[in-house]
Simulated assay, not measured.
Amino acid sequence: MLCRLAEQFEAASSAHVAENGIERDADWFLLKLQEEMGELTQAWNRLTGRGRAKGRSPEDMRRDLADETADLLGHLLLFAHRNEIDLAAAIERKWRFQPAQTSDR
């Protein structure tokens, strides 16, 4: 599942940067993660009353939070893809997830 998502984000990102003349060098991937984390923080602050609502309704602010979360996930997957990180294996190792056991019953 992660590999498929990463491939979809890669296709979308490649098209976006090509249309806008953006060069994705090694630093770009990490800098975009930082930028998106800032935008997620800003959306959270707005939603929780720690930032100006800027005329946004609570529903709009929840949607903004979801959108910024999606952006952060996308850029994290792009970073992992660019750096040839097997994210699924790293998650299993780091979080001590065990592969699903199948039952013969």
Rank of each mutant, 00 (worst) to 15 (best):
R50E: 08
M37F: 13
W28D: 05
K54N: 09
R46Q: 14
G55Q: 12
E35V: 12
L73P: 00
D60V: 14
H16I: 01
N20E: 09
F79W: 09
E35L: 05
M37P: 00
L78T: 05
R24V: 08
A70W: 03
I22F: 04
G55T: 14
A66F: 15
W28V: 02
D64W: 06
D64M: 09
L47P: 00
D71W: 14
A80V: 06
D71A: 07
R56G: 02
A15T: 06
R82D: 14
A53N: 10
W28C: 06
A43V: 06
S13Y: 02
V17H: 10
H75E: 12
S57L: 11
A53L: 13
A70D: 05
L73S: 05
N45S: 11
R24F: 10
S13T: 08
R56P: 05
L31M: 12
L73I: 11
A15R: 07
R82W: 03
E68F: 00
W44L: 11
Q42N: 15
A53S: 11
K32S: 05
G21W: 04
S14G: 12
H81L: 14
H75T: 06
R46Y: 07
A12E: 01
K32E: 07
K32H: 02
A11N: 06
G51Q: 00
K32R: 04
L33W: 07
R46H: 11
A26D: 13
T69S: 13
L30E: 00
A80Q: 02
L72H: 10
A15D: 01
R82V: 10
T41C: 13
G55D: 11
L77V: 08
L33M: 03
